[in-house]
């Protein structure tokens, strides 16, 4: 029973952090590949690597700080934070899926001119660094809070890093393919999972015992998925005057 529960937990942690990281990695890779292709790769890759170094420090410090908090208050605080934060992604996901369906993100404009001057290209460095740090901060937040509260920071970091490596490899091999990943749908899936676990942990952190124990997570997930589908249908019906299912 314990092993089953533990395995399910690892699966949820891996999937959630992998998908959350994929959502942000798409934008991150689009920025880095766009800057690298137009201004040159050396400074861009050094900038991106520096950004990842900053994120690693953030994850380590934030992870250690949260690990020091007892599990009861931790679940209440982190659950409430994840719930409020997850609801942002949930609402954005519903709005964007209602508007764009399974479309990917628009390709960015590569306005930067190629660097031909002598010395180090600091503009490329800063653009890549900013892209990685700003897009990666939300992922770091999700990975640490989710990982520490589920007592599985290792799998959470692996899930997050795998997504960056896979999306990065796709971006390096076939750049336009990255923009075709259905980012809005992924954002909705992650928002739904964060809202589910946020609700479960925050209420449990208060001291409330869920009926059916951990199985309540699946009931919450079903409730929020149904809500998302209903809201997408309502939004599209309101905007277009017909059901989304007929348009597809």
């Amino acid at each position: 029973m314990f092993n089953m529960s533990l395995q399910t937990g690892i699966g949820f942690v891996l999937i959630t952090t992998f998908l959350a990281s994929t959502v942000e990695a798409i934008e991150m890779v689009t920025i880095v590949v766009g800057v690298g292709a137009t201004r040159g790769w050396r400074a861009t890759l050094i900038g991106a690597a520096s950004g990842f170094a900053v994120l690693a420090v953030v994850v380590a410090v934030f992870g250690l700080a949260l690990s020091a908090i007892p599990i009861g208050p931790l679940r209440l605080i982190v659950g409430a934070l994840l719930l409020v934060f997850g609801l942002q992604w949930f609402r954005k996901g519903v709005t964007r899926v209602a508007a764009h369906g399974l479309a990917g993100m628009k390709a960015g404009h590569a306005d930067e001119e190629a660097w031909t001057g002598p010395g180090f290209d600091w503009t490329a460095f800063v653009l890549a660094f900013k892209g990685v740090v700003l897009e990666g901060l939300e992922v770091a937040f999700i990975v640490v809070t989710f990982g520490v509260t589920a007592n599985q920071l290792g799998p959470a970091v692996i899930g997050g890093m795998s997504a960056v490596v896979i999306v990065g490899a796709i971006g390096a091999a076939v750049q336009p393919l990255v923009t075709r990943i259905p980012r809005s749908l992924l954002q909705l899936v992650v928002g739904t999972m964060l809202t589910t676990f946020g609700t479960f942990w925050a209420v449990e952190g208060i001291g409330v015992i869920w009926p059916a124990g951990d199985a309540a997570i699946l009931v919450l997930l079903a409730l929020y998925v149904s809500t998302a589908l209903a809201l997408i249908s309502i939004e599209r019906r309101h905007a277009f005057g017909f059901s989304p299912w007929r348009q597809a």
């Binding site: 609801l87 949930f90 519903v94 609700t199």
Partner: peptide, 11 residues
């Protein structure tokens, strides 16, 4: 309470 509140508030 919280699950119902979440559904209502998002809507």
């Amino acid at each position: 309470l919280v699950p119902i509140l979440v559904v209502v508030m998002v809507t």
